[in-house]
């Protein structure tokens, strides 16, 4: 019983230390974790894969540093998919904080493809294959305005170039030219795309969300308002797996690398809850 008494008064810093160790060790000594691709991610991949040549993929990268580890791997995997399949991409953010991370993901994946390109036609060119529209507030301006004219909402791109001067944008006027909008967000933004852009202009919406919002946002996938859905680190790992196995695209898979730590941490927290409850019951009996 002494051990139960000790456990019931365990210092919080010991709990912190245990958690830190179980997260760090699998990162230093990684093991291969296979991930099963579930229906929501499979549907998102299929929806993007089916974008016709005359339409583009619009990516709303709305993750800030606070949710970066979960959502950045999704952004990278989506870009790898699009660039590999030569789907033209327009990237934007509804908020200012995600801008730098959106640019980081774009630069990283464009560099990955360009460093492997053997001939000029293989490379990914800014303005022809992708554009970075940047940020225009408040969110309702792009959400509704792009249904009429993308160039009016974004007169200049992130780099300050005139949007209508970019070759890719000559044929892209509004949501009619967008195959699907995929919103990778740490908040509620995917619902806004559904509520404002989809209901008024009929555009398809997919989402990559932080797991905190999974429970709340899942109903929009069940109702068919989201064409597909990625949830948290696991969803990101599933998309990485799909891109790697279906398209043979190589590159670092940060979400898949994290699965070992995720295994250990989940198990630890389950054990914490069980021990906490055992010591609670023991104390109550006493």
């Amino acid at each position: 019983m002494k051990i139960l008494e000790y456990l019931s008064t365990l210092d919080r810093r010991i709990i912190y230390l245990v958690l830190a160790i179980v997260v760090i060790l699998p990162l230093i000594f990684p093991s291969i974790q296979r991930v099963r691709v579930m229906d929501p991610v499979g549907k998102l991949f299929a929806a993007i894969d089916a974008i016709p040549d005359e339409q583009i993929l619009m990516l709303d990268f709305d993750y800030d540093p606070q949710t970066q580890p979960e959502l950045e791997p999704m952004a990278v995997a989506l870009l790898r998919h699009a660039f590999n399949r030569r789907i033209k991409v327009a990237v934007l953010s509804l908020y200012v904080q995600p801008l730098g991370l959106a640019k980081k993901a774009l630069d990283q994946v464009a560099e990955e493809f360009n460093s492997q390109a053997k001939i000029r036609a293989d490379s990914i060119v800014y303005g022809q294959d992708y554009v970075f529209l940047g940020w225009q507030p408040p969110p309702i301006v792009p959400l509704l305005g792009m249904g009429i004219s993308i160039a009016e909402v974004y007169p200049r791109d992130y780099y300050g170039l005139r949007t209508d001067s970019l070759p890719m944008m000559h044929k892209v006027r509004n949501f009619n030219d967008v195959g699907i909008i995929v919103c990778v967000s740490g908040g509620n933004a995917p619902i806004w795309w559904v509520a404002y852009s989809q209901t008024r202009f009929g555009v398809a919406v997919g989402a990559g969300i932080t797991s905190v919002y999974a429970s709340e946002l899942y109903q929009y996938f069940q109702s068919g308002q989201f064409s597909g859905l990625m949830i948290g680190m696991k969803g990101a790992a599933e998309y990485e797996e799909t891109v790697a196995s279906s398209l043979r695209v190589s590159g670092r898979r940060k979400a898949t690398e994290a699965l070992g730590s995720l295994n250990a941490a989940h198990l630890t927290i389950i054990i914490f809850i069980i021990i906490g409850n055992i010591s609670f019951v023991a104390r109550r009996r006493k």
């Binding site: 912190y16 958690l19 540093p65």
Partner: peptide, 23 residues
């Protein structure tokens, strides 16, 4: 500056959540 500070602030929550789960 912004990225490490912002992401670490939220990473703290993992520790607090583990502690709360236990207690």
């Amino acid at each position: 500056i912004i990225v490490p500070l912002g992401s670490t602030m939220f990473a703290l929550l993992a520790f607090f959540m583990a502690s709360a789960s236990y207690r």
